[in-house]
Simulated assay, not measured.
Amino acid sequence: MILFFGTRPGKTEIKRLPSVRCPYCNKVGTLTVSIASNYFHLFWIKLFKISTSKIAECSHCKRVYYNNEFTLEMENAMGMD
């Protein structure tokens, strides 16, 4: 019997944070968060999520924030959706 299993990325979810201020340039409404998840699959069927990574980017100053750099304001805005 042959089993096809492994990991593969899911669809990337993009969320805008309209009421959050960029900590670097202090502009409001310029942050966009990309959320990407990796899944374990068996016969190309997703079984469970292995990991999730979040990256925020400011469209004004182009500063990138990784998950460990998120402010409390960013975390709260993502949790509201």
Rank of each mutant, 00 (worst) to 15 (best):
I2T: 14
W44G: 11
N38K: 09
K11P: 07
G79F: 15
V20M: 05
F43E: 08
A36D: 07
V33I: 09
Y24C: 13
I35Y: 00
G10K: 00
L3W: 10
S59V: 09
I50T: 11
V28R: 13
C22G: 04
E13F: 05
K46Q: 09
K46L: 10
E69M: 05
N68F: 13
T71P: 01
C58V: 02
V28M: 13
Y65T: 01
C25Y: 03
F48G: 07
H60P: 04
E57W: 00
N68V: 10
L42Y: 11
E13W: 05
I50N: 09
I55G: 03
Y65L: 03
M1G: 15
A56M: 08
S34M: 12
A36N: 07
Y24M: 11
V64C: 01
K49Q: 10
R63K: 09
R8V: 02
C58W: 00
F43H: 12
E13M: 10
T7A: 10
S59W: 06
M78Q: 05
C22F: 02
E13R: 08
I45P: 06
T7H: 07
M80S: 15
L31M: 02
I35A: 02
W44S: 15
N26T: 15
T52D: 05
T71I: 06
G79T: 10
K54E: 08
R21W: 10
I14S: 10
N67V: 10
R63L: 01
E73A: 05
F43L: 11
G10W: 01
I55W: 00
F40Q: 09
N67C: 12
C58N: 01
E75Y: 11
F70H: 05
S53M: 14
I35D: 01
F5P: 00
G29R: 03
L31C: 02
C25I: 00
K62E: 08
C25R: 01
T12N: 05
K54F: 08
F5W: 09
S59E: 11
L17I: 04
Y24Q: 12
A36Q: 12
S37M: 02
A77S: 08
S37C: 07
I14W: 04
F4D: 15
F48K: 06
I45N: 11
E13L: 14
L47Q: 09
G10M: 04
Y24N: 13
N68R: 14
E69N: 05
L47K: 08
E57D: 08
F70R: 01
N26I: 12
N68S: 15
T30W: 03
C25W: 00
I50E: 05
H60N: 12
K49I: 07
R63P: 00
A56H: 06
M74W: 04
E13Y: 10
E69T: 03
I2N: 14
N67R: 13
